[in-house]
Amino acid sequence: MNIFRLAGDMTHLASVLVLLLKIHTIKSCAGISLKTQELYALVFATRYLDIFTDFISLYNTTMKLIFLGSSFSIVWYIRNHKIVSRSYDKSQDTFRHYFLIIPCLLLALLVNEKFTFKEVMWAFSIYLEAVAILPQLVLLQRTRNIDNLTGQYVFLLGAYRALYILNWIYRYFTETHYVHWITWVSGLVQTLLYADFFYYYFESWKNNKKLQLPA
């Protein structure tokens, strides 16, 4: 565990907390894509199949449980909570899951570390995580007024990915035989998807103006 990895995980955790804060305290999910949240739930469900078989550390298991629990409860809140679900605008959140899930599944069948059920599911989760933010980014573009919590949520998710890249660079130089092409390439793609968002996020911050993405 290095400082970049820890900072990345904490940023990821912070993003989840920001979203839960919005849902629990403000009782709103306005501007949040249910499609993206469902994809994340699928990402964690398929990636953490090893939760009961491979023990890495207490930290690792705890974080897995947090990400699994929070992602499924967020989906439940947006879909089923009496008040929260009212703020969900289905007509704006139109991205199709299948366009992302099917290509990722096919890619996972072709490119994986080992052709076993668990490894194919793991590779699938890595590919799917890389693109799972797309419905959220599309929704942001359509939203005239992006509220602060939504902007911060997406920013923290992007920051988490950027910190993971620093973690890989650090590990590459400090550990022997640390080479993981699947996570590196997917992680790089995932981080690049945020580039445009980051640009407008910093612009709005610098000029002290409300965040708005050009259509």
Binding site: I56, F67, N167, E175, H177, T183
Partner: peptide, 10 residues
Amino acid sequence: GELVGMHDEL
């Protein structure tokens, strides 16, 4: 420490 064959990242 590395755990060979295990995915130790989240």
